[in-house]
Design a protein around this nucleic acid. Structure first.
Lengths: 336, 336
DNA sequence: ATGAAAGCGCTAACAG
DNA sequence: CTGTTAGCGCTTTCAT
């Protein structure tokens, strides 16, 4: 089938073991020998068989990325951060899409698909109570989470309470007193980001003695269309809010759309603020709380590599909180 | 380390060979024996070691997806289509980001990273002349392209000439006579989609005896910011166009933004049409030529699986052209 | 239909 | 620093 380590060994006049050591950069190899082996390998255009070395070494050299959505902005952006780090580390990235809280199907579960196949797993923003997640965690593999936090599992996330506070405080500072919220979903499993953001929102309202009218809390399911519906809902109420906090930029996009359909101008008639720092937000002139999404992916990937490399050294990974930053644009303005 | 096929064989009272046959669904196994083996495997919670079976069989059971961008809408959307098909087929998806026409670095090239590692490769929308692509093709692996076409290589794409015609004809039908274009990049390597779209655009202009003023052809580099700059360029010319064809939705988003910054209203003062069917386009009310991006990924993945499964049967894959559809929205309107 | 035996190509002790 | 010797866990002829 191909050139084997045996061929290289013969070509260089050494044993396969030495070739193995030399090519993997192990310490105990004579410099001259190593050079000769490298030359031989290059001459023969040799590439080691991953299957063979995995089998022999017990390491797979690959890590799985598990995500409920591949094409949505947040997930794709995290993924790109992860990919660059893994690529630089020479690790294979196995992409695994999962359906959120899928009904138990005959298809093998995500966890089953990982067994004996990867050295670690990175999970992007799934509700921590999802059975798919717990099943993966039960595998005992080094694992890292992004955008969710779970006691005892290393991960990287923003301070969601704080991010929501930044957004809401901004609206309050502009003089708004009747402030609506577009959240995710009522039904979906306890998703830390969502509950935390709602808490931050309410904290600021309460701190300023503002209206906590439950009718002002709507749900946009983290989609553009959902955000539009939620905003329309808010606008058609007897006493609509003068400002709205959306838990994601995509929902905020929908809200902006609803506004313009109703002949209203964002930042003048109604203020809208989101969370994310989505590429499109700049061009929609949306005020938002920016989170470093690509970097979160990189950091999580690096943490995973550290865990794997650590071996017995027991690195203490913990949960990394990344900073967020309010970016003020035209979609928010003083209460008219 | 784990349960091996030997353990299952002992548990079921058969030989490892029979376990292997039974579990992989090979024909020549007694039904009762197979059932007993499956039960034993389930009892022991056995999962075959991929490394071992890959080494023994010579098949890797994985395919690589090579893409220059991971988080951009088009690429992420193709990827999700690919992923669902591969997952259903039980194939591993190895994600490989590459830098377009990267300067030769010391890092192993994309092609090197594939050798002995995958059964096939799927390449998303890279210029076909990019050395990275040709190097992969030279590997002789089953390969499938998405969004680019290359003589002799199976792939799936839209008819870019036709898509551009649809968009441009729509503008002409609305009475526009001075029509601008926002293309990709002048410098970048001969990218089929780009040259084809420009051809379709010019064909329609010529067919109607319209102005082919070279100053009306600008470049937005397929980004939002680039589209905005290009549109601003067009608007500040002595005789600006009354309608603009953008080669991608993201560039069209930038164009819309430029318009509103100049106090102009899309669809009334200037018409804008894009190509893509980006999620956000609906909510920006952008007229666009929709391409079935997710499906293109699925089809390409399926074609790749067919090639691999075909063995010696020599399936004739060829290039699949997917249909595009003009979706008229508010960003285009009759010449004022 | 099942078993025995021989690898697949590499790594990892263990000697030397 | 280098070679020898065993496997890693599975698949695959080839017998039976």
């Amino acid at each position: 089938m191909g050139i084997t380590i045996r061929d290289v060994a013969d070509e260089a006049g050494v044993s396969p073991a030495t070739v193995s050591r030399a090519l993997r950069g192990m310490p105990n190899v004579n410099a001259a020998t190593r050079a000769r082996i490298k030359a031989a390998a290059a001459r023969l255009d040799y590439v080691a068989s991953p299957s063979a070395s995995r089998l022999a070494s017990g390491r797979t050299g690959s890590i799985a990325v598990i995500t409920p959505y591949i094409s949505r902005w947040y997930f794709a952006t995290v993924l790109s951060g992860v990919e660059s780090v893994l690529q630089a580390a020479g690790m294979d990235l196995l992409l695994l899409g999962v359906v959120e809280s899928a009904a138990p199907s005959d298809q093998p579960s995500a966890a089953q698909r990982l067994r004996r196949r990867v050295d670690g797993a990175l999970i992007i923003a799934m509700p921590p109570t999802d059975p798919q997640i717990t099943e993966v965690l039960d595998l005992g593999l080094p694992t890292s989470l992004v955008g969710v936090t779970l006691e005892g599992v290393p991960g990287v996330a923003i301070d969601d309470v704080q991010a929501a506070r930044q957004a809401t405080q901004h609206l309050v500072n502009l003089g708004h007193e009747r402030i609506g919220m577009i959240g995710g979903s009522t039904v979906e499993a306890h998703f830390t980001a969502e509950t935390d953001r709602e808490r931050g929102f309410r904290e600021v309202l309460t701190a300023h003695g503002l209206d906590n009218d439950p009718r002002l809390a709507t749900h946009g399911y983290f989609t553009i269309a959902g955000g539009e519906r939620a905003m329309t809902n808010l606008l058609t109420q007897p006493r609509p809010p003068t400002a709205v906090f959306a838990m994601s930029d995509e929902m905020a996009f929908g809200a902006l759309r609803s506004l313009s359909l109703h002949g209203l101008v964002a930042g003048r008639d109604v203020s809208i603020v989101g969370i994310d720092g989505h590429d499109v937000s700049e061009h929609l002139d949306l005020t938002t709380v920016v989170q470093p999404v690509t970097e979160m992916g990189s950091v999580a990937a690096q943490s995973l590599l550290d865990q794997i490399g650590a071996g017995t050294q027991e690195v203490q990974p913990g949960i990394v909180r990344m900073p967020t930053q309010l970016r003020v644009r035209g979609s928010t303005g003083p209460r008219s």
